[in-house]
Design a binder for these strands. Structure first.
Lengths: 357, 357
DNA sequence: GATCGTGGTCGAATCGATTCGAGCCATTTC
DNA sequence: GAAATGGCTCGAATCGATTCGACCACGATC
């Protein structure tokens, strides 16, 4: 009977097997491996030798995790499948900052695409994670959020609606866009339009209508709209599918391909990638930037292949990820970090100019 | 005593607590949750009610994993930190294909930067993974590879040296570059140079010397060099730091900023990103492409912001990831999939032309 | 009326380690 | 010489679930 628990019946050898072979108890073998207790050099050598003979590769991480109640894994919930999400430099920088900080406690990052339930994807609810970070997913992710709450593990969101159970990291979205809007107003623009990020779970492309706004659930988008309205009350626009330049191009074509009298003289895009698409659309329509059209973005990333320097506001994407990481570390240590909100920084470029006469 | 194991002393409630509350045994409660055994509707309802009252969020994934010996997590070893690695579209596409396939068995992807040991990063050796995929890391990753082998879990590499313990997914690197080289030869080029990817763990930038080649450990790079040598024996070049356009630019400047008589008329870059950098360097030096210089790449990705269409060979990056995913699934099921090697496809563009007189 | 099923439930073993308290032996100290 | 000290080692409990075989009651069958 005892030999049964010790024999490696085809599987990997266990610590117990190593201990038996070394002629010591399992507890001693454990101590020898972890170095947590007083073990004589002689015994340690015996254990290590036995381990080598048996090809024991060290304690099973799963068993360790169960015992200590921690898996050392942080879940990162991303909006879509990897191939799509990771085209966004903002997301990547955020994840980079996050990964960097949680490495301080030796934790790893498990990617969890925010799937439709039942799609076969591993669900955030049955992944062995110690905590979860919502990156690029907003309240939007409600379906999974409820289940997450019941798990009673720390949840950190990067941008999103205030929530008592969820630690939030954000930037001054409203203030940032207001800076841009004021800049355009000071240049004399009055006919402006927005190209917004997704506004709800639908992700339907189309004009920004009061109905759509009423059903809005993506805080970032809403805040950035509000920032623009502070300066240009009632400003309208077009909802793009996501932060991609092709989506921006599409939206801009819808806004710009109209009689000149109705055409906006400035477009506020809610991300630099969208702005890059707007520039492309302007080019296609033969509009000069900034003479005929001014364009601003948001994020302050370097858009690959964009030769112009975009007028935008810079936000600390990596810093946000890092802040989320530090928050996780604090929460796991049982402390209660204060919510973090970063400032943004106006970055003048050459894509804005005086409103055409 | 018994109550101790049932009382939720501040932590999350356990299945045992739920069972006690529902007045059933733990086994029955387990059955009720998993639906794996015959349980009367009445009992199930009682258990579910008790769970709701206690705020039980479902079975602990860690304990489940230990029991069934599977964590449902696949480790993806990437070459550098996320912010760096994920700038490479080839890597992202590969990961995307991989994630997609392993979702079939409900597994998730744990990112494991191939760190220097002792850097505090979670090591691949103590992560609770069921299998590991080396993506963009070659034999290069030897330090960690040894430790991995001892864990006795399936290992799949995407590109890399043949190895009995490691399932390999690759493309015809040599043949692909040969196609490009033949194309250049047919255009009359004789003075050609390579811009290679990293060749060893050093990642030092510099000329491609016999010494460096002797110490080469990155199979992909070596194979692609060999493909070029098939057509242009003894062709030399410059080792870039990695697949980034700035690294390509740097290498190209070193190769092109020489007296015209020595200057190559064609450059074979080992990736499209490198090629994009070469184009940028040519532009800076006032060289016209393809009149003064022909440039080819490798990968067949759409390089953001590159307006020209690059002459290159296309490789199925996503397909490679997917193949790796399927291999994992097979290996975990105890079967032995055959190694996979994909073909590549020549893609003519407008960056190559006849050799200047 | 006794036996055979069978649906439902439970006990106990198991997964592979960690850790605390207890015990043992040898050395030192009074 | 006895007691105290201290370094090592071991047993047993624990982490939280799953699962196999046993068991029980009840209805059906011969």
């Amino acid at each position: 009977m005892k030999s049964q628990s010790v024999a490696s019946a085809g599987g990997r050898p266990t610590l117990a097997a190593v201990a038996a072979r070394a002629g010591v108890s399992a507890s001693t073998a454990s101590l020898a491996f972890s170095g947590h207790g007083p073990v004589s050099d002689e015994t340690r050598a015996k254990v290590l030798a036995a381990a080598a003979e048996l090809g024991y590769g060290g304690p099973d991480p799963l068993a360790q995790s169960l015992r200590r109640g921690r898996s050392g894994i942080i879940g990162a919930v991303i909006p879509a499948r990897i191939g799509v999400s990771f085209r966004d430099p903002v997301l990547i920088q955020t994840l980079d900052g996050l990964a960097e900080e949680i490495s301080a406690i030796g934790a790893g990052l498990l990617l969890l695409p925010d799937h439709d339930p039942g799609s076969g994807y591993v669900s955030v609810t049955d992944a062995p994670v110690d905590a979860v970070v919502l990156v690029g997913c907003n309240a939007d992710a409600l379906a999974t959020l409820e289940a997450l709450r019941r798990r009673n593990i720390p949840i950190v969101q990067i941008e999103g609606p205030a929530d008592a159970d969820v630690h939030t990291i954000s930037v001054d979205n409203r203030g940032g866009v207001r800076l841009l809007a004021e800049h355009l107003r000071d240049l004399g623009h009055t006919r402006v339009a927005l190209v917004t990020l997704a506004i709800d779970r639908d992700r339907t492309v189309g004009p920004l209508t009061p109905e759509r706004e009423a059903g809005a659930s993506v805080t970032t988008t809403v805040e950035r709209i509000a920032g623009a309205r502070n300066v240009f009350p009632g400003v309208g626009g077009w909802i793009a599918e996501g932060s991609r330049s092709d989506a921006g191009r599409e939206a801009a074509l819808a806004l710009l391909d109209v009689p000149q009298a109705d055409r906006p003289t400035a477009i506020l895009a809610q991300s630099d990638l969208l702005a890059a698409g707007v520039l492309a659309a302007a080019d296609e329509l033969g509009l000069r930037v900034p003479e005929d059209l001014s364009v601003v973005g948001f994020d302050g990333i370097r858009v690959d292949g964009l030769e112009r320097s975009l007028t935008t506001v810079w936000q600390p994407s990596q810093g946000k990820g890092a802040a989320a990481g530090r928050a996780i570390v604090e929460l796991l240590a049982g402390r209660s970090p204060a919510p973090v909100s970063f400032d943004v920084q106006f970055q003048p470029g050459d894509t804005t100019g005086p409103a055409p006469a």
